[in-house]
Each structure stands twice: as C-alpha cells, then as structure tokens.
Design a protein around this nucleic acid. Structure first.
Length: 505
RNA sequence: GGCGCUUUCGUCUAGUGGCUAGGACACAUGCCUCUCACGCAUGGAACACGGGUUCGAUUCCCGUAGGCGCUACCA
C-alpha cells in the first residue's frame, strides 16, 4: 500500500479569502506531491451552504496562479475523479451514508437543534455518545415502524456515526508520531445534515479522499482532534488498508501576544494575511493582499516554506525547485510558529536583489507612470541597477530615486545647513563651468575631470560633492554623484546647479 | 471544564547522553565612503521549571507550569 501513487489534495471551503495559513498548507502539499512525482488535487468543500461566499473559489484559484502553486486536477483543472466540488457529489454521499446505516455503523436521529441546545444548557458537558444516545430520539431506541413513519411524515433527521466506546484509536502522524486516543471521549458525530441535505466535513472528506485515491492527508493541526474519528470512519467503510497517511501541520501564530494569526494582526501591524486583495461582497470591506502590497510571490513562498519547516542546513534562500527537492514532512516543526513579518520583508529585499534589473524595471514602470513621468525602459533599468539594493519593496524605489526624473522643488533644510557653506555658490559655479566645458560627459570622464580640478584647487572632496549632491538631489542621499549627473545628463545637471546657486546663494 | 498537541536566543529555527549550544531576522557597534543606503565585520541574546535515570543531561522518563487547538446539523 505504500507503493501506490502519491496523491494529495488541498480542499478549501469557499467561505472567503484564503488565509495565509491555508496557503502554507497548500504549498506543503504541492512540495510533497512534486517531490514524489505525484498529483495535487484541488477540491472545493462547500458542504456548508450557509457559509458559502460567492467569488471565494475564483479568488483561491487566482491566488495560487499568482504564487506559482500548480494543481494537477480538480475544480477548473479537470481529472478522472470528479466532480471535485462536494456540492455536486450529493448522490455519492447518499449512497455511502446508506451503506453505514445498513451495516449498523450509523443511525438516524430526530433530535432537533433546539432540543440538543436545551440538553447542553441543562447538563454539564453533555455529549451525544454511547452514554447518552439511548435517552435520545433516534433509530436505536425508537421502533422501526415509528422511525419509518417519522421519516415518511417528513420529519427532519440527521445521520450520526455510532462510535463504540472503550477502544484505543491509533493515529499514525508523520509529523507527530503515534497519537492514541480513547474512543469513549468521541461523540456520535453528525455525518449527514438535515438542514441542507449534505454530509458534514467528516463524511465527505473520508468518502472523497478514498474515492480520489488520496495517499496522504496534509492539513492543519486543528484537525488532529477529529483524526481518530476519521480513522474509525475508514474502518467502518472497510477502507482501512488504503487509508491515507496523516500529517498535521502546526498553526501560524500572531507575531506578538497570544493566539493564532488573524486579519486584525495584519491590519494592526501593517502586513497582509491574504495572498490577494479581497473585497468582501457582503460588507464591502477591503482586506489587503501580498500581491497588492508589492510582495514578490517568490519571497512569499520562500518565507512561508520556512515557517514551520527547515531543511536542516543553513540555506534560507530557495527557489520553488529547491524547495521541492529539499522538503521533508518529517522535519516539520511540531509547535506553532509566530508570523515574523519582518523576516518576510527581508525575503522580499533579497528577491529584489536576485531578480534582474530588467524584471524589476518592468514592475517599477507602472509606479513611475503613475507619477506622471515618462521614462524609457532602458533608462529605468539603469536606475534600477543603481538603486534596487536600497529598498525592500519595488514601490519604495520611487521615493529613493525620484530625483532621476524630477529636479528638486526644494532643498532639505537640515542638509542645506550642514552642506551649503558660504562659498558653496561660488564653488558650484566653478563646477558648473568645468562640467559645461566637458565634451565627453561620461561618468568616467566627469570623475576624472572633477577629481583633477578638486586636487588642483586644493578643495575638499566632501565639501564639493555634498554641495553638488544637494543641488542635484535636494537632500543628502543617493548613489555616487557621477552616477546621478551622468544619468540625468549634462543639460539637466547644469540647470540644477544653476538653480541651486540662485536659490541658496 | 474535558481531551489532544506543544515548549532551544525577542522571532524563525539547527543540534547532541559529554559542544565555546550553530545559522537567519531584528537590535547594537565598527569598517567602507562624496551623502544616504547596500554590503562586510563584530557583539549582546536561548535549552520553561521540578524531580528522576545516568559517571554525566538541553538531549531519555515522570510531573508542574505556559502556549496552541478541538469540544456545532462550520470547515
């Protein structure tokens, strides 16, 4: 059974935007599938008609397209195990529920939600299980003809799983080892709901994973408590020998304080928790996304991969291909990981560095255009090569280098005080004259000419360059001076010098 | 409350029955330098606590405490 093809699935509920924890779960599934030459299935678990949110499914798909996580089959991808949307599999579930009913592994219960609520309110720690089921209204206590009559009369009912107490259930988890729990603490879970005539997660999940020949279930830790129930279900169906292997991933926690990562943390601390921007169709509220916040997908993937997993060496920057090669479920950490968004920013910086100037220039171009500047791709590329190492996000490039496009409208007061001396105007006048006389305005030639001039005159390197910088940039920042003057050109350089002399005197 | 999972620098983590407990982010300092960054170098910083087992435990076992999760006709 261990020789069968690796098939894993990512199966979200279309209840809203995809949480970043879900993205990581999908990523781990993807890495595992690719490493083993297997398949990644995209299944939609829409068995809760109340929580269905239009647009969520498309959003999830678009998120993975952006991130580069590719599915092999499933909703919108096709495949031989469909349909892949659970709401389209009603008939299949009905059949299997009946099978459980027929074999006595499940039973019909007529207790209404109100009755159950009253029980829970009245009895401390009430649980629908072996100790209480005989006192409830179900097919185990009611005579067969009465059950038939109730159903015939249109009474609503659910199907519950009959958990036999006193049994040690073993869950063999790749990450956590063997987890043993006593079936006595499990309740008779509802497998089939009356409200929308759909199965619950537990039933649909087991039936689908079996029918879709899923070999490994890699999912969040929140499912660990119900894993024993799932094992029991596989057993009840007689599918235990092809039961998937489980791996329960630790959760993503708040960067500070207690609890798991939520949208509020992102809002408060200033980082997104969703891959793409999300517009809630009901409230109209907008949640920010990594894509719109200018994160590079490679950086998000790399960062996420390392949150809760580590290859065991000191290498941190890895491409998707390298991740596929190195990934190891057994090396996933058991404890929850705080979402260290500052490190994610660092990853983004590293990926900006690693991308070619051209790629970054292409991303930067729309930002430049938005500022009303028309620059050639070549010009942008040269600026990017000079400036990209200084920023964490591409959009920050504008603030860092707007002087390449626009002459300073004003001069930073503090810098003026520090760098513009009594004789600066006179010296800048001399510099302008010198630069104006140059036929060859190349960076190298400017450098040579100006250095010779400074030396001949006995001027200080700092006083000249800093005043020059103030004139061209408007403040005390930026790359080497001739990397600025050389790029903006002779005419613009002279004009800016002239204006500084006039304004600053 | 019950049940389960979990615990190494502030954070993500590596690691071992005997090590100066390693790396990265963040932070600090220094170097570089025409400025600001980048970069480079250096530094501070951790085995939750209490019992065992052992010649020796951060490592193995048992407790305690903290953290997280589940406890729906939600997934």
């Amino acid at each position: 059974m261990d020789n069968r093809r690796v098939r894993v699935r990512f199966a979200p509920s279309p209840t809203g935007p995809l949480h970043i924890g879900g993205v990581r779960t999908a990523l781990y599934n993807y890495l595992f599938a690719k490493q083993n030459g297997g398949d990644l299935v995209f299944r939609i678990e829409d068995t809760d008609s109340n929580r269905f949110v239009p647009g969520a499914e498309e959003y999830i798909l678009e998120s993975f397209r952006w991130l580069g996580v590719k599915f092999d089959e499933g909703v919108s991808f096709g495949g031989n195990y469909g349909p892949y949307r659970q709401s389209e599999r009603r008939e299949i579930y009905k059949k299997y529920v009946q099978q459980l009913l027929d074999s006595g592994k499940a039973y019909i219960a007529f207790d209404t939600p109100e009755e159950l609520e009253a029980k829970r309110a009245g009895i401390e720690n009430f649980q629908y299980d072996a100790s209480t089921r005989m006192g409830m209204r179900n097919s185990l206590v009611l005579p067969a003809d009465e059950v038939k009559a109730l159903i015939g009369g249109g009474h609503q009912y659910v199907v519950r799983f009959k958990v036999e107490p006193g049994e040690k259930v073993l869950v063999d988890d790749i990450i956590r080892g063997e987890v043993v729990i006593d079936s006595s603490i499990l309740d008779d879970k509802v497998l089939y709901k009356s409200a929308d005539e759909l199965p619950t997660y537990h039933l649909a999940n087991i039936v689908d994973d079996h029918l879709m020949e899923i070999s490994h279930v890699i999912r969040g830790e929140e499912w660990l408590p119900s894993a024993p129930l799932h094992v029991l279900l596989y057993r009840a169906f007689g599918w235990e020998d092809t039961m998937p292997r489980f791996a329960h991933l630790s959760l993503l926690l708040k960067p500070e304080g207690n609890g798991k990562l939520s949208k509020r943390d992102g809002d408060r601390l200033g980082f997104p928790v969703f891959p793409l921007e999300w517009h809630d169709p009901k409230s109209g509220a907008v949640s920010s996304g990594f894509r719109e916040s200018d994160y590079l997908p490679e950086a998000v993937i790399n960062f996420l991969a390392l949150l809760g997993w580590n290859p065991g060496d000191d290498v941190e920057l890895m491409s998707m291909e390298e991740l596929v090669q190195k990934f190891d479920l057994a090396k996933c950490s058991k404890a929850g990981a705080r979402f260290d968004y500052k490190k994610m920013v660092w990853f983004n910086h590293e990926y900006i560095l690693r991308k070619s100037d051209r790629e970054i220039a292409e991303i930067f171009m729309p930002v430049v255009k938005a500022h009303g500047v028309d620059a050639s791709p070549e010009y942008l590329e040269r600026i990017v090569s000079l400036m990209k190492g200084r920023v964490n996000f591409v959009h920050e490039l504008w603030d860092a280098c707007s002087f390449y496009f626009i002459a300073p409208a004003e001069y930073d007061e503090k810098t003026v005080k520090k760098r513009w001396k009594e004789d600066s105007a006179q010296k800048m006048g001399e510099l302008a004259e010198l630069l104006g006389s140059l036929e060859d305005f190349s960076i190298e030639n400017q450098d040579k000419a100006v250095h010779e001039w400074i030396e001949a005159k006995g001027y200080g390197m700092g006083e000249i360059m800093n005043a020059f910088r103030l004139a061209l940039v408007g403040e005390g920042k930026g790359p080497q001076m001739f990397d600025i003057s050389g790029l903006i050109g002779k005419e613009e350089t002279l004009a800016r010098l002239e204006r500084a002399i006039k304004v600053l005197g």
